[in-house]
Amino acid sequence: MTIGERIKELRTAKKLTQTDLAKMVGLSYIQIGRYETHKSNPSSDVLHKLANALDTTTDFLMQGSSDDVVSAQLTDRELLSQFKQVEKLNKEDKHLIKTFIDAFLTKRQVQNLAH
């Protein structure tokens, strides 16, 4: 998959038009179309703006890195920000947070089965 294909995929997943995305990053819809059809590649500055607007990373846009697939699909900006902060914690704190999330999700699953 190319940069343009990833931009288009993320843009459509967020239900944005080329015009919407262009306004978010300060470009014309024509330029977004050029990126998506492989007629042009974004500069590094524009790539950063696109990544922010699409709630992903520049690595994902450029390489489709599997490590960043979750970031590309996570649309809750606050939650994404929290996960990025958790990434910086030490091993023990990360384990505690993972245990809490797992316990919460398990509780919800049990509650849903009971109803």
Rank of each mutant, 00 (worst) to 15 (best):
T37L: 08
D102R: 13
L54A: 08
G26C: 01
N112E: 15
N112D: 13
I32S: 02
E92Q: 10
A53L: 04
L105I: 09
M24H: 09
L61F: 02
F60Y: 15
G64N: 04
L96Q: 08
T12K: 14
E36P: 07
K14D: 06
L10N: 02
V69K: 12
L61D: 02
A51D: 01
K94R: 11
A114C: 04
M1K: 05
K98H: 12
S28L: 06
K84P: 05
K107I: 06
L89I: 05
Y35H: 02
Q109C: 05
N90L: 12
K107E: 14
T56D: 01
S66W: 14
K39F: 03
N41T: 05
K14I: 03
I3H: 00
D20Q: 06
S71F: 11
K49G: 00
F60L: 05
I101G: 11
S81T: 10
Q111C: 09
Q31L: 06
L21G: 05
Q85R: 10
R11P: 10
Q18T: 03
F60T: 03
M24T: 03
V70E: 13
T57W: 03
T58W: 01
F83G: 04
L61V: 05
S81N: 14
D20V: 04
V25L: 08
K84W: 14
T37D: 04
I101T: 14
N112P: 02
S65N: 15
Q82E: 13
G64F: 04
N41V: 02
L21H: 03
T99P: 00
E78R: 14
T99S: 14
K49V: 00
P42L: 01
D67F: 09
Q31V: 13
V25R: 03
K94W: 07
I32E: 02
G64A: 04
F83I: 12
T2E: 07
L74H: 11
I7K: 01
N41R: 05
F60S: 06
K23I: 07
E5I: 13
R34M: 12
I30M: 11
H95P: 01
H38I: 08
R108V: 13
F83H: 03
R77K: 15
P42K: 04
E36M: 08
L80I: 06
L105T: 11
F104A: 12
T2H: 08
K49C: 00
I3Q: 08
A22M: 07
D68S: 13
D59K: 11
L50M: 07
K23D: 09
T58C: 08
V110H: 12
T17E: 02
R11H: 10
R6D: 01
L27I: 03
N41K: 06
L89V: 06
D93V: 08
L113A: 12
L113R: 15
T75L: 14
F83E: 04
I97C: 06
Y29D: 11
L47E: 01
I30C: 07
T99F: 07
